[in-house]
Design a protein around this nucleic acid. Structure first.
Lengths: 163, 163
DNA sequence: ACAGTATATTTCGCTTCGGTAATATATTGA
DNA sequence: TCAATATATTACCGAAGCGAAATATACTGT
């Protein structure tokens, strides 16, 4: 009946709203924008969205080295350099040489970096609450599970597979 | 019993794996990386992940103006300029002045830009299939719904609300 | 001891994105 | 007609990220 099978793409769609990649990217960028504005409005001029990941790691455990911070925040070492540069410039962290291993620099919170913790935590929680309004608990849990599954897929796919 | 109520954050968590913002951002960047490598391996050296949104719009309807492309791809006009610059440099599109309105430039696909459609569609479908393996249809639909809801929340929140 | 390898960090170049301001053209109202 | 306003695009700047290569230090086996 069908002389030539029509190419049936499962994921390729002309409608961006139907493309998971488009949606994920858009949400990521839009959320970043929201955080940026929220911080500015709260007078947290020294705080940028990208700092959050690093700060949350350091509030939990101060003095981590660059690589470890990158691992926890999901960023490449080369990305960390610029990020730490800006955070240092903005007075949130300092680089402290490690006497035990002269290759490593430990990243330490400054007074200011420690002090803003509660303010930031409140603001982040508030923003997340707005962004996630009308998303019930189950759907949120489901969202996180699916995203984690996708990350697993990607990491497995990029591993060296033996012959 | 509890003399001072402990601050119970609903979303603020020290564990990135539990933070929706972290997960969404990570998936977006990781997926971009996968596309980049896949295109390189397929010999599509002139194609970068960011081009996909624009190309998909143009394959659907050629000759759109910059602003309209940006609206459909979810990008600011100022972002479009550099993107179109690179796409033009890489031989995928051209800027054509619109005689009806001398402010606008219509973006047209080149021969090369049209020609790669099928190759790209196949590759994208393949990559998406790998990235979304172990994610069943319902979960994927749920994921998209939730992400769309979040985008709606963000856009509503940033609208000018009357006094 | 030392050559080879591994690890930590940086440097450099590039992409991708947003925000603000400038420029050019259209449109509209008085 | 012409001033005010609106729209389309670009220019410029900074942030944020990746990847390859360079540099410095540490470790390991012989």
């Amino acid at each position: 009946m069908t002389p030539k099978k029509k190419t049936a793409y499962r994921y390729f769609s002309a409608d961006p709203q139907d493309c998971p990649y488009y949606l994920v990217t858009r949400v990521s960028l839009a959320a970043t924008s929201v955080f940026k504005r929220a911080f500015a409005e709260a007078g947290l001029t020294e705080l940028r969205p990208a700092y959050m990941g690093v700060l949350m790691c350091l509030w939990n455990e101060d003095g981590l080295k660059v690589i470890e911070l990158g691992r926890r925040a999901g960023l490449e070492p080369s990305t960390m350099t610029g990020l730490i540069d800006r955070m240092e410039r903005d007075g949130l962290v300092t680089r402290v040489p490690d006497p035990e291993d002269r290759r490593v620099l430990k990243i330490n919170l400054t007074e200011a970096g420690s002090a803003i913790k509660d303010t930031v935590a409140e603001k982040v929680d508030l923003v997340m609450g707005q962004v996630l309004s009308n998303v019930d608990t189950d759907d949120l849990a489901q969202l996180k599970d699916t995203l984690r599954q996708i990350l697993t897929n990607i990491h497995e796919g990029s591993e060296d597979e033996p012959s």
